[in-house]
């Protein structure tokens, strides 16, 4: 049994750690600090945490001003509000201005299962990916959440980090880094995954191995800028490609992988939400099953691509 941890708690603790080392780090929140876990920084450094009330548009532009004044603001809300409600502020005041702002979108995908469609971000990667100057990170486990914070601090410019509300297991990884990372090799097919879906891809690999299908599992936490050469290399010698993400199939990881493989196409199956809003349910898993984001869905696509469907 692998170790489970809550990524947003890992995030909040790690932000405090980095803030202890770098006093330029400040945080802003829009009345969700108990969920985004920016409250941990508020406890430690109250003067460096700005509660902005329920006003995401102002919050994002205030963060841009803090960045122009030399601070490194981490801006928190649910992913859906941060990237949706404040999109145009992100576009003009942050991305166009190349402001050194880190946007931390919490409770992405179906992880806020009870609250329903209004609170479930399924298009945030697509809209952040479309903005020039924006880096988009979708960590696969709590360890990568920390790596994402480190990378965000190395980059002098806008970064979007997507963080799940649900516990995630620590996944084995050979080397640090958020680019396309080969987690388990295989020779028949490659699956590109990120976020919570990476653990499903690893499970699918074990099931498929028993059926004689060899699946290569690649984690792609950094959706933008995407290391296209890495994607091309890891897809070059296989019969087909599967992408899996807790996001709409429009504009996210699947689209990014297809763009990377446009000149060297392979039969590809995109697993994600098929152009639909979410809804309420009693668990995260229930929604993932309902919308077809499962280990079995990966196995089915793999069999199909191998001509056994």
């Amino acid at each position: 049994m692998r170790k489970l941890a809550c990524p947003r708690e890992a995030y909040g603790r790690y932000l405090v750690k980095r803030a202890a080392e770098d006093e330029r780090i400040v945080a802003l929140d829009a009345d969700l600090s108990g969920s985004t876990m920016s409250c941990l920084l508020r406890e430690q450094y109250p003067e460096r945490h700005f509660e902005m009330g329920i006003g995401e548009q102002n919050m994002v532009a205030v963060a841009a001003g803090l960045a122009l004044g030399g601070k490194i603001p981490f801006v928190h809300s649910f992913a859906v509000f941060l990237t949706g409600r404040a999109f145009e502020q992100v576009r003009q005041s942050v991305a166009l201005a190349k402001a050194n702002v880190k946007l931390v979108g919490s409770s992405y995908g179906f992880s806020d299962f009870g609250d329903g469609a209004t609170h479930q971000a399924l298009e945030d990667v697509a809209i952040m990916r479309a903005l020039p100057n924006m880096t988009v990170l979708v960590p696969m486990d709590p360890g990568e959440v920390e790596e994402a914070v480190d990378l965000a601090l190395e980059i002098r410019g806008p970064v979007y980090i997507r963080i799940s509300r649900s516990p995630m297991e620590y996944l084995p990884k050979e080397e640090p880094g958020l680019g396309p990372a080969l987690l388990q090799d295989g020779k028949d097919l490659v699956v590109f995954a990120n976020g919570l879906m990476t653990s499903l891809a690893l499970e699918a690999r074990e099931i498929l191995a028993q059926e004689g299908i060899s699946l290569r599992v690649v984690n792609v936490s950094c959706v933008k800028p995407l290391a296209k050469d890495g994607i091309q290399r890891l897809a070059a010698d296989v019969k087909g490609v599967i992408t899996v993400e807790e996001h709409s199939v429009i504009g996210g990881l699947g689209s990014a992988v297809l763009e990377a493989l446009a000149l060297t196409p392979k039969p590809t199956c995109l697993i994600g939400v098929e152009d639909a809003f979410g809804q309420s349910a009693q668990s995260h898993g229930e929604l993932l099953a309902h919308y077809g984001l499962t280990t079995e869905a990966i196995c089915e696509r793999a069999r199909f691509l191998m001509g056994r469907g």
Binding site: V62, L68, Q92, S93
Partner: peptide, 19 residues
């Protein structure tokens, strides 16, 4: 700052003042 889409400058100014 970058402005043009209206309504954002006062927020940016506030952020600078806080910094």
């Amino acid at each position: 700052a970058n402005t043009g889409s209206l309504g954002q400058g006062l927020s940016i100014g506030l952020g600078l003042a806080l910094a």
